[in-house]
Design a protein around this nucleic acid. Structure first.
Lengths: 114, 114
DNA sequence: TGTTATACTTAGAACTTCTATGTATATTGA
DNA sequence: TCAATATACATAGAAGTTCTAAGTATAACA
């Protein structure tokens, strides 16, 4: 994955995926494209990396899946966020803000993620 | 570790430690206290968690260590950042800003870590 | 009709992290 | 004075996670 550290990508993947799904239902392949687009190409998940994350989130009941056949005739597994997932997302947002505050203090930058 | 997710703590620990050392030389025990203080108690590294991280950074030549006997008579292993560590810190800061930008877009918040 | 893009799955290799345990000494306070 | 606590560091390996690599399948396109 390009230049971004694996740790940061790992730490951000769940909040990012939950955020995407909190706006619209989506499916694996589209989520990968969306993240690539949002990051301007800096984060490029391999499919084999993202799908297991989706399965994990599903197992934890943060999201749920159903199969749908697209107009194209191709079948896709759509995911939607569950209420447990929304709560988790809120928690993740708080965490992110906390860490950002600490880092901002150290770097002498005013935090804005508040 | 309290409520903060392990992933986030993991992703932030190296930039945080390098930042602390970029201001002053310090030693393990003090770094733990400093992080606890900065995070208002939210991040409380176990010593067995932090020391291996310091060893790893030393091995990668981002920091270097030397023993010193404090006024108290107690011996401490002080760490100071090396130029390679400063470069790494700069890279980590950029990464952090990149991820923050993505997250800000998703959360409709204006990023300030820029 | 061959190649590329779309779409998903999963075993297990590879890696990381933290727990648990150990050592040692200074300080505090009962 | 001596027990408890705080300071200070080290590390084996348990426990966990993540990603690579390989596989299946079909639509679109040239």
């Amino acid at each position: 994955m390009e230049n971004l550290s694996k740790e940061l990508i790992g730490a951000s993947s769940i909040p990012i995926i939950l955020s995407i799904l909190s706006k619209n239902e989506s499916y694996g392949y589209e989520i990968i494209q969306r993240i690539k687009e949002l990051s301007e190409g800096k984060i490029n998940y391999a499919d084999g990396t993202l799908y297991p994350v989706l399965h994990k989130l599903e197992k934890k009941e943060l999201i749920e899946a159903y199969w749908k056949v697209a107009e194209t005739g191709r079948r896709r597994k759509y995911y939607r966020i569950k209420s447990k997932g929304k709560k988790e997302l809120a928690r993740e947002q708080e965490n992110w803000i906390t860490i950002n505050t600490i880092i901002s203090k150290l770097w002498n930058i005013e935090p804005r993620l508040t």
